[in-house]
Measured scan of single mutants.
Amino acid sequence: MDSLVVLVLCLSCLLLLSLWRQSSGRGKLPPGPTPLPVIGNILQIGIKDISKSLTNLSKVYGPVFTLYFGLKPIVVLHGYEAVKEALIDLGEEFSGRGIFPLAERANRGFGIVFSNGKKWKEIRRFSLMTLRNFGMGKRSIEDRVQEEARCLVEELRKTKASPCDPTFILGCAPCNVICSIIFHKRFDYKDQQFLNLMEKLNENIKILSSPWIQICNNFSPIIDYFPGTHNKLLKNVAFMKSYILEKVKEHQESMDMNNPQDFIDCFLMKMEKEKHNQPSEFTIESLENTAVDLFGAGTETTSTTLRYALLLLLKHPEVTAKVQEEIERVIGRNRSPCMQDRSHMPYTDAVVHEVQRYIDLLPTSLPHAVTCDIKFRNYLIPKGTTILISLTSVLHDNKEFPNPEMFDPHHFLDEGGNFKKSKYFMPFSAGKRICVGEALAGMELFLFLTSILQNFNLKSLVDPKNLDTTPVVNGFASVPPFYQLCFIPV
């Protein structure tokens, strides 16, 4: 009986604490739906499609509103004006990374994606500088992407125009580009180590996009005490870190300090320079996690976009025909596509942009946080508050993009057929937390897609009208449904 009384008292205290925290903070924060004790607004949000729920709530509470995930307040920004004001106009104040408990377990605050403060700034600055020195957006990395595009075309030829699921092959190409940047090595598509790495990356994007992960991140005790797919994700990350550590040891034994070959060499050189400046942010643990982040951000996002792009091109054969006509006119058949071609191919450029806009790969991006107490639109948001960005509300804005739910390359073309930029184009987020590999991803999408369409016609196994382009999961990332196609050599 005594234990029951204690339990009831504990629960009562928890409920009172929950109510007090919510009521004391709500006077400062933007308005929002009334949260339930302990669980907050979790029942009012469709976990399978958070973005749709945010759109519905914005119609009631406006472009800036507050939700509670458990006891934790989260300020939501919906629509271009609110997102721009926060991420661009007040970029420094909104540059923090929001709480992501599962990532905390995986990387302990290291790396480039989930770190904060001085650690994040130094690692991000170093990573950007190193990638630029190796030619991100310049010639040397373009050579690597072109080489991988040629290998991709050869792998597709091996399908002999038979029906195939493109998931694996389209994942190999961007993964190999990242391998060449980090390890100075590309792998054969049949290499077992490479296959294991690909498998872990593919599993992780599916797990991260599941409703279960949303629950884990908002009720963090689940991570330590409950079984579930989150444990598989943590094991996959541990596998990748151990693999990278092996490569780091190989580099330490063979590195030429006067001739760095890749990202690992550059990081080890930085560690050597910083060894007298303790404590340094440049450690082996930081290198492991930064490399894992580059793999995660640079492989599955690009391969998922490529997979979605081919599905949309199957669905819209008239678009595919126009792209192939432009390829034939500008590039021809006797040389590989290059980035200089893009400025002469406005329709193809528009298609690449429209694919990214339409699929809305990361509907709410990753959570941000404010780095200080900030007054925002007459609300006071306390330091450390998590900020949720609705990228969907920007990419699918119906004023900027008429009929935003329709796939239409003319969203990025003017009346004369010239490519038209849009400030609403934010597939990689915006501001200080914009994806480090934005330029690389854009290069890969253009070169891989043009190389495929230069060499193959795409054949659907069903009537294009019957192809479903609805994402199968739409949590962290929008993942396309399973499909097969035939690559018919031109």
Rank of each mutant, 00 (worst) to 15 (best):
V145D: 00
I169K: 02
L17G: 10
I181Q: 03
A161Q: 13
G79S: 05
I327L: 07
V330E: 12
K48V: 14
G475S: 10
N204C: 05
F428D: 02
S422Y: 05
S162I: 07
F476D: 05
P260V: 10
N334T: 09
N202R: 13
P221S: 11
I205Y: 15
I47T: 15
T301D: 04
M136L: 13
K121I: 12
Q454R: 03
N277E: 13
N418E: 13
D468E: 08
F401T: 04
L11A: 10
R26C: 08
R108Y: 14
A321H: 13
T386S: 08
N41G: 03
N277R: 15
G96S: 12
P63T: 06
H353M: 03
F183V: 04
Y424P: 04
K315E: 02
I223R: 07
L362K: 10
V473H: 09
K190G: 13
T130V: 10
C175E: 01
S140R: 07
H184K: 15
N204I: 10
L170H: 02
G384E: 06
G442C: 07
S254W: 07
H344A: 06
L43Y: 06
F94H: 05
H251V: 04
V292E: 04
K249R: 15
I141C: 03
L36V: 10
G137L: 12
E155G: 03
P427G: 05
S3G: 14
G171E: 15
H230K: 08
F376M: 11
S115D: 11
Q214G: 10
K399C: 11
H344C: 15
M136R: 15
V60E: 12
I452N: 00
P279I: 12
R157K: 15
P464D: 05
V490L: 14
L467D: 00
A321S: 14
M345L: 10
N258L: 12
P63L: 02
E154P: 00
S127T: 15
F282L: 13
Q192R: 14
V394R: 11
G91R: 07
R342Q: 07
K28G: 12
P480Q: 02
A173T: 01
F425G: 04
Q484P: 04
V237G: 06
K121C: 06
D414A: 06
T364I: 14
F126N: 05
F401V: 05
F425S: 08
Q340L: 14
T167G: 09
S127L: 14
S242I: 02
N107A: 08
T469C: 08
Y308G: 06
N398H: 09
T386Y: 14
L9M: 07
D341R: 00
A106G: 11
G111Y: 03
F376E: 01
T130P: 05
L170K: 00
D468A: 12
N107R: 13
T229P: 15
Y61V: 00
I359T: 15
L361Q: 11
L447I: 15
E272I: 15
K185V: 04
K432L: 10
Q193K: 13
F134C: 07
F448V: 02
H353L: 02
F65E: 01
Y225L: 15
R329W: 07
T55D: 09
E199M: 11
K206A: 12
K206F: 08
K270F: 06
F282A: 05
F487A: 02
F110E: 10
N204A: 06
Q22P: 13
S162E: 13
